[in-house]
Amino acid sequence: MTALDALTPLFSAHARAERLMDARLDADRGEGPLSPEDEAWLESHLASCPRCRGAFEDRSRLVQGLLREPPLMAPEGFADRVLARAQQEVTQRPAVALHEEPRHWGQWLMAGAAVAATVLFVALAGPGRGPTGAVEVGGAGGGAPVVREAADFEVRAPSVGAAEVRARVVRIADAHSGTVTAHDRVLVVRIPRAELVGVLQDLSRGGELAVTRKSTLAPEQETVVLEVALE
């Protein structure tokens, strides 16, 4: 038995304890109790492991401390200022207000909520997938999309309907050697990893489909699965 073998069970015990700590803290706040086995296991691990005990105390103090922070309040007159702006819109409602100000493009993202398509990036489950790598496509305000590290995406289509989104996604997947299967209101798109950047650029081309959000994707993954939810 190597030294590493000897340490492995210990590492995974700490890791398990770490996972269960949140569940325990959240159980007090309406997220349901731990299973009796997990509860007992955590209890006994905390009793025997000073490191995890300390971590648990820090964590529970943190959660209680954050909840206890005085809430931030909107400034005096906030509601009046909002109402005044709304009133102004009634009297001079701009025809294409949602597209005019690049600074406010979040507004047209929401404007299209009814026909919005959400693309969720689903990393394939598998062993050894660390959180790294991936891509983000930005630049909805025009110009070449900016591609950076990231993953899970949201595609919103303010000006096109679900059928149009579907047709476009199928066309784009086709062009990148991908496949699309439809499940009720969700399109599952499988593409080779190497095509990911191109697919995201195509999705966001022209600005009609805006790709936002990011998280992580394992770099070694060869097939990438996108879920497009047609709302």
């Binding site: 909107a74 400034p75 906030f78 909002v82 702006r85 709304a86 819109e89 949602l98 507004q107």
Partner: peptide
């Protein structure tokens, strides 16, 4: 704080413009 007020105003204005979209 100033940025937050600006943003929060925009959030409510978006709500105002898109109230009909709520399903």
């Amino acid at each position: 704080r100033a940025e937050a007020e600006d943003l929060a105003q925009d959030v409510f204005l978006t709500l105002y413009r898109n109230a009909g979209e709520f399903r």
